[in-house]
Every structure is written in structure tokens, then in C-alpha cells.
């Protein structure tokens, strides 16, 4: 078997300040080259923090980090200076939720892409511009020659997100991080961008981590899904496994709350309560207070991580048990 492109082991991220927040707690994750993983979770589950940690974008002075992150065998926690810069944007790049904010308003689209290419590939301006044009064509922007000279504000939301993707892929990263890139878009545009990302992933062969709160989007984009709750991965598996046979009660609740094909007028099986505030490090199952199936043991100690199949895991004491008595 090939080596993973990304391996995260026992990552902990803590924000220190007036209030300490344990944002990521003992997170481990493995990603194979060319794999598309959806990190699924609600606000505050730590999914965006995971992405930022991967790019080492967190403010170092206020953040307590431990654990290891290896990208293609290199420990990225030790990178600095030039190596860090070539890692960011060269090996790994990111697509943000709000392209209107992530693109620089005072440069044309072509200049922004060309600048990134020149910086990472060390080519001259005309060659970089040719790459930029090629990228705009690949993200299916109509009349790309003309669009090169446009400023971000002259483009529609969907076009801007395409430009953002072109910018992220211009240096041929081996890992693409996408932070809710379709959340701000309209439904008919969202599906276009999802399909585009899927095609480009196949074309470029990079690995993708796609952060989203929307199960439907995760299903459309990913081969694998990791469900996050309170800074931990509570369930992981192929998309098919997680959707067809969710084993963690939280995943089950999320699927029910998606309202896909729920008969009108039936009462929703809502997960009660709200996620924990993470001011202390969890020492029991974080979901237990909201869990309909919680046992005393769930509140006493951290749940065991069960592995019902290869690369499938569920952090729940009751996973695999029959839940007929619900």
C-alpha cells in the first residue's frame, strides 16, 4: 500500500486567552494521495481549525499545539521560513468560503494567479500569464482571455469562486483544502462548483479535504467522510458506509436533521441541546449529554474507538450494538 499524503496523529489545539478553548482534542486522521475527504461538522466542531492548523495559519503565541502532522513524510510542525512558504500554496493550497474576501480587490484576476505561479514555480511573467489563462479555461470560465483582465468585483459570486479555485490549483498542489467553498453560493451555482471540483480532482489527481456542515454537499463531493464533534472525529468511513450505516448517534441525528425525504408534519427527531463550550478538555464522551442512548459509562470515561471495518471507525461505546430499544 502507498504511503499516506497526510497523517495527523493525536493533534491537540488549545486557544489560550481570557477563556481557554480546547478546539481540537486528540484528532488523528490519515489521507491517501488522490483521496477526497469531507470533514463534516457543525459550527465550533473544530473543522475549520483543523484546516488552519494544517496550513500553520493559527496565531502561534496564543495557540497551544501538540501532536504531529506529517505531509508526505515531512513533519510540518517544524517547517519555517522558505520551506513553510513553499509548503503553503505550493504543496497545499486552500479555497475559502468567501472568495470576495479572499481575492485581492486591487489586482486583476490574471495578475493574482500569475503572481502565485511566479512565486512558487519561478517562471517569468508571460509564462505565468499563460498558466493563468490555462487555469481559467480549466475551471470552465467562459471567454477566459477577457476574464484575465477583470477585477474580482466585476465577477459574479460563482465566477469568483471559480477564480479562487483556479488560483488554488495553479501551482498543482498535492493537497487542496476547501473551507465551505459553496456555502455562500446559490443552489444552482453550488452544484456547478461541486461538480467542477469533482472533475478537477480527477484531472489533477490531488487529495482534497472538504470542510462542510452540509451532509448533502459532503455526499456529492467526497469518497470518505469524517464526522467531527467537539474537536474530535466521532465517525469515519467511506461516504457510502457513513450514509447507509451511520453508527454514531450524532451522525444518525445529523442525517435525520437533514430533512431529506422527511414526511411533512411528522415530528423531527431533533438532537436536544447545544454543543459543549470546550472550556475544559473532554474527559468523557462529549456527546453524552445530548445522546438518547447514553449509558452511565459514557459520562464517566472517553468512549472507545471501535473499528468495524478497514479504515472505518466510530468513537462510541454503543457502536455496533443493536439499537432496537430506541
Amino acid at each position: 500500500m502507498t504511503d499516506p499524503i497526510l497523517q495527523i496523529d493525536n493533534l491537540n489545539v488549545r486557544f489560550n486567552g481570557k477563556r481557554t478553548v480546547h478546539a481540537i482534542n486528540d484528532l488523528s486522521l490519515k489521507l491517501m494521495p488522490g483521496e477526497t475527504l469531507a470533514l463534516l461538522g457543525e459550527s465550533g466542531s473544530g473543522k475549520s481549525v483543523t484546516l488552519k492548523t494544517l496550513l500553520r495559519l493559527l496565531p502561534e503565541r496564543r495557540t497551544g499545539l501538540d501532536g504531529s502532522i506529517a505531509f508526505d513524510g515531512t513533519d510540518i510542525m517544524t517547517l519555517s521560513g522558505k520551506r513553510l512558504r513553499s509548503y503553503r500554496g505550493g504543496d497545499v493550497s486552500m479555497v475559502f468560503q468567501e472568495p470576495a474576501l479572499a481575492l485581492d480587490p486591487v489586482y486583476t484576476v490574471g495578475d493574482q494567479i500569475a503572481e502565485a505561479v511566479m512565486r512558487h514555480k519561478g517562471v517569468d511573467k508571460s509564462e505565468a500569464m499563460a498558466t493563468a489563462l490555462d487555469m481559467l479555461t480549466r475551471v470552465r470560465i467562459p471567454s477566459p482571455e477577457r476574464r484575465l483582465k477583470n477585477y474580482p468585483h466585476e465577477l459574479s459570486g460563482g465566477m469568483r469562486q471559480r477564480v479562487m479555485i483556479a488560483l488554488a490549483l495553479a501551482c498543482r498542489p498535492r493537497l487542496l483544502l476547501a473551507d465551505e467553498p459553496t456555502t455562500a453560493l446559490d443552489a444552482t451555482v453550488q452544484i456547478q462548483i461541486l461538480l467542477l471540483l469533482r472533475e478537477l480532482q480527477r484531472e489533477f489527481g490531488m487529495a482534497v479535504i472538504f470542510v462542510t456542515h452540509d451532509i448533502g454537499v459532503a455526499v456529492e463531493i467526497s469518497e470518505r467522510i469524517a464526522v467531527m464533534y467537539a474537536g474530535q472525529i466521532v465517525e469515519e468511513g467511506t461516504t457510502r458506509e457513513v450514509i447507509a450505516d451511520p453508527q454514531h448517534p450524532y451522525t444518525q441525528g445529523l442525517l435525520a436533521a437533514n430533512l431529506h425525504d422527511v414526511a411533512k408534519g411528522t415530528r423531527l427527531d431533533a438532537i436536544p441541546g447545544a454543543p459543549p463550550s470546550l472550556e475544559t478538555r473532554p474527559d468523557a464522551c462529549s456527546f453524552a449529554p445530548r445522546c438518547p442512548l447514553a449509558l452511565p459509562a459514557c459520562r464517566a470515561e472517553l468512549p472507545p474507538v471501535k473499528t468495524p471495518g478497514p479504515r472505518r471507525r466510530v468513537a462510541c461505546l454503543r457502536a455496533g450494538q443493536p439499537i432496537a430499544a430506541e
Binding site: G273, A274, P276, P289
Partner: peptide, 9 residues
């Protein structure tokens, strides 16, 4: 549900 904020600060 008279739940809300299970960790009842």
C-alpha cells in the same frame, strides 16, 4: 424540550 445548554452554566 426544556433542555437547552445541557452543561447548564
Amino acid at each position: 424540550e426544556a433542555e437547552l445548554q445541557p452543561q447548564a452554566e
